[in-house]
Amino acid sequence: MYMYLPIAEVSVNIFIVFGMGGAVGILSGMFGVGGGFLMTPLLIFYGIPPIVAVATEANQIVASSISGAYAHWRRSAVDVKMATVLFLGGVIGSFVGIKLFVFLKNIGQIDLIISLSYVVLLGIIGTLTFIEGIRSIITQQSSSSKKVKRGKERPWIYSLPLRIRFNKSGLYISIIPPIVIGFFVGILASIMGVGGGFIMVPAMIYLLRMPTNVVIGTSLFQIIFVTSLVTVLHAYENQTVDIMLALILMSGGVVGAQIGAALGHKLKAEQLRFMLGILILIVCIKILTELVIEPQDLLIITDII
């Protein structure tokens, strides 16, 4: 069954888009990843214009991060104060990101930048996920290896000015580092249509030294607001948020996340993680190939109404 998407201005097979939402939903349910970094490339492969894919995916992440954050909220594993500070940086980052996006769009390089960003990002995440997955198979007996190694010495970034107390995380640190982290995540969200959890989570653990139990909840909680803002900014500046497309993806995601969560309990998801790594690397290579091989059309025609 085909449907005409009003903003993307292409007709898509509803079942395929629903299936993509579902498949990525299963992965996020199983592995606890946001899935934006897989969904945006999939949408582009399917023929959705990259600028619409990015903006619409930001919209979908709002929904998926709300459901993700809720579980952590109930366990009171969200540092709201930290999330607020991160969001502050996220606001600045989103505005800068959108301006950058508009600039790149006007000089005709936005598609290239989106692709290149994905090659770099997916290359890193894919490799790390793969290595981690292999490692978890090798060391499946010793659960102690999962502990995060943290240095004893106080990192220098703690002693920057504007220090405040984060009770939930048990930290008394400068707000500058979290603002900077939030800033970069805001830029990533606006240019790539991702939540940015994969950057934020390690940064919170290794740079801010937050306790791991509040990291994911805080990250997801923060992503809700950054992607909400990014959606509004894309809609306002570029008119590229396709509500119809987002709705189909969200419905697929609802079903997929349920299946994924159930599967995650049955299968040993941690040990399947290396397969997620391979999948991410395949997507990365596909984007890279499209950049390297000679394109069929050597002329790119962009309509101006």
């Binding site: 929904a63 709300i66 894309h234 948020v241 609802v254």
Partner: peptide
């Protein structure tokens, strides 16, 4: 989307919030 882009964006976000809450409800 083209005539009231700000309102459109806000509505898109509200829809996503509802969708998120539905997922929570289902879970």
């Amino acid at each position: 989307a083209n005539e009231k882009p700000l309102l459109y964006g806000i509505i898109a976000v509200i829809i996503a919030w509802f969708a998120g809450l539905i997922i929570v409800g289902l879970a």
